[in-house]
Amino acid sequence: MINGISIYEILTLTTILFFIGVYGFFTRKNLITILMSIELILNASAINFVIINTYLYPENLQGAIFSVFIIAVAAAETALAVAIIINLYKMITSVEVKGTELMKY
């Protein structure tokens, strides 16, 4: 718990982070920045878990442990996505969304 900062401020921050991530996911034109937006979403959830754990239910550690798993899984997900992007780059020499329009509708 942090002195002088209530749970409302932090939850507002994480919600803003979350929606920046969602906005970025839908508007960005570059695959790497889309990946960064997803990281924002996942990190917002991880912070949420820790904060809710510390402020509301400090008797158990469920939220804190959940956030550790989120970080681990997010790393695995990013690693695989970057691997696929690199493979795509080898073929189309670009990481733009425009390059992935072979299949539509």
């Binding site: 979350f18 991530g21 969602v22 996911f25 695959l31 889309i34 990946l35 997803i38 979403i41 996942l42 917002a44 959830s45 991880a46 949420n48 989120i70 899984v73 997900e77 695989l80 996505a81 696929i84 992007i85 493979n87 795509l88 073929m91 992935t100 072979l102 299949m103």
Partner: peptide, 20 residues
């Protein structure tokens, strides 16, 4: 590769939203 990137990005977004 295109199918893979579409799948992993949408899956990651779904995961993130679900976690929130």
């Amino acid at each position: 590769a295109e199918a893979g990137i579409k799948f992993i990005l949408s899956a990651a977004l779904a995961t993130g939203v679900s976690l929130f």
